[in-house]
Amino acid sequence: MKLTREEVRQVAVLARLALNEEEFNELYGKFNEVLEFVETINNIDTENVEPTYYLMPVQNVWRSDEAHQPLAPEDVFLDAPERDGSFFKVPRIL
């Protein structure tokens, strides 16, 4: 199964990746090549096989409901691309 260029473009929007034309062309070919490869697992018989959702050897991991000191304000905004007072700033959402 190959995805059309339009379908791959839709995936890029879903993933929020802007790709220029050259980049898209290169990615498009490789994407389908890899897709064809990973699709081969559908040749494997997994009748009556349960999926492995977790590799972690544990269940029921929780902590008690006790507050810890939050991050200091200077650390909260240490790496912020844009801030406005005590807020992170982003382009207007409509």
């Binding site: 995936v11 993933a15 890899v34």
Partner: peptide, 21 residues
Amino acid sequence: MKTRGEGFGPEVKRRIMMGTY
């Protein structure tokens, strides 16, 4: 889109695309 398109390199973008799909 631009942030992620410019911030990530080609292999990372390929894998994000495949994973999203």
